[in-house]
Design a protein around this nucleic acid. Structure first.
Ligand SMILES: [Mn+2]
Ligand SMILES: [Mn+2]
Ligand SMILES: [Zn+2]
Ligand SMILES: [Zn+2]
Lengths: 153, 153
DNA sequence: ATCCTTATTGATAATTTTTGCAATAAAGAC
DNA sequence: GTCTTTATTGCAAAAATTATCAATAAGGAT
C-alpha cells in the first residue's frame, strides 16, 4: 500500500502519470512472485485493460527500475516488484528454483566492472543448470558415460 | 567445413538425422557472429525452408550444444556456433558489446556451484549495463543528481 | 537398388508479442 | 471547478513464435 504510493510519487516526479492500469498491475504483482505477462493479464483483465497495455506497462515499469525482469528457460520474460537484489538458479530438467543473496555475486560483479569499465546492472540474474536431484537421476540413467575418444567410424 | 562434418557425425551418433535444412543453417552461422532467427532465415530462405523449421532447428541445435543462445535486450534470442566459452557485456544505451574470456567468471561459477549444489551451464552469459562512453554522457546530461530525500509534497 | 522405420519437414493454424494511430484522460495551471 | 497539454490507452493490424499433423525423406537393413 504505502509501497505503491511511494512508487506513484516517484513516477509523477519523473513526469510520468499514475494510471489505474499501472496501479492495477502493481497491485497484481504485490506479494506475488514472478509473473509472466499472461499471468498478469489474468489478474487484471476484469479492469478491461488490454493485453497490449500489459506488455507496454510491464516494460515501462521495468525500464524505470520499479520491476525486475527475469528470463525463464526459452527466453520468456517474467516480472516481479523490484526489491532486494537477488539472483536465481533454475534447474533445466525439473525447474527447481533457488534464490541467491545478491552479495554472493557482488564481489565478482565489481571485479568485472573494474576490468571492463562497464557499469553493470546485474541486480537480478538467472543462471541455468542441473539441481542436485537431477544430477543424481542422470547418473543413474547414464551409468557409465562411455569413453568414445578413440572410436573409429 | 571439417567442422560441420564433425558436427554431422556427432548428430548421427546420437540417433538424429543430418538434413539439408540443418546443414544450411549451420553453414549460415559459420563464421557469422550472433544471428537472430530472422537473420538466419534471410540467409537460408533460398533453400525453400520454412520459418518454423528455422526456429525448431535453432532450438534443436542449441539443446544439443551445437549452438550457443544469447538474449539480447528485451529477451530476444540470438544464436552462434558453440565454440570457446565466453560471455558478453552489452551497453543498454548504445548497444556496444564487449566479450569476456570465460575464465573471468570461471572461479565464481565454481564457487556458486559448490554453495548451491547445482551444476551450472553458464558457458555463455550476457550482462547488461552502461559502457564507459555512455556513463560519461549521462554525467554530462544529469549534472547533479539532486537530493530529493526530505522533499515534502 | 529397394524397403522400412521414424525423425524431420512443410503447411497451416494458434498463440504471443509488437506496432501505429486516433481517442482518452492524468495532472498541472488557472 | 474549467482549460490545456501531452502521456497513455484501446483498438486493430502486423509481426514473431509456437503448436498440430499429415507428408516427406534420412539412414540403416536387406
Ligand atoms: Mn527474482
Ligand atoms: Mn557469444
Ligand atoms: Zn532438477
Ligand atoms: Zn554505451
Amino acid at each position: 500500500m504505502s509501497c505503491i504510493l511511494r512508487l506513484s510519487q516517484s513516477l509523477r516526479a519523473r513526469g510520468y502519470r499514475v494510471t489505474p492500469q499501472r496501479l492495477a498491475i502493481l497491485e497484481a504483482l504485490h506479494h506475488e512472485g514472478h509473473l509472466s505477462p499472461a499471468q498478469v493479464y489474468e489478474r487484471v483483465r476484469q479492469t478491461g485493460m488490454t493485453e497490449a497495455t500489459v506488455y507496454r506497462t510491464l516494460e515501462f515499469l521495468r525500464a524505470n527500475n520499479i520491476l525486475f525482469a527475469a528470463q525463464r528457460e526459452g527466453g520468456h520474460l517474467t516480472y516481479e516488484l523490484a526489491g532486494a537484489s537477488h539472483h536465481h538458479l533454475i534447474c533445466r530438467t525439473c525447474g527447481a528454483q533457488v534464490d541467491l543473496e545478491a552479495e554472493a555475486l557482488q564481489r565478482l560483479i565489481a571485479c568485472l566492472e573494474q576490468q571492463s569499465g562497464y557499469r553493470l546492472d546485474a541486480s537480478h540474474l538467472t543462471l541455468f543448470g542441473l539441481c542436485p536431484n537431477c544430477q543424481a537421476c542422470n547418473e543413474i540413467r547414464d551409468p557409465e558415460p562411455r569413453d568414445t575418444r578413440d572410436q573409429v567410424s
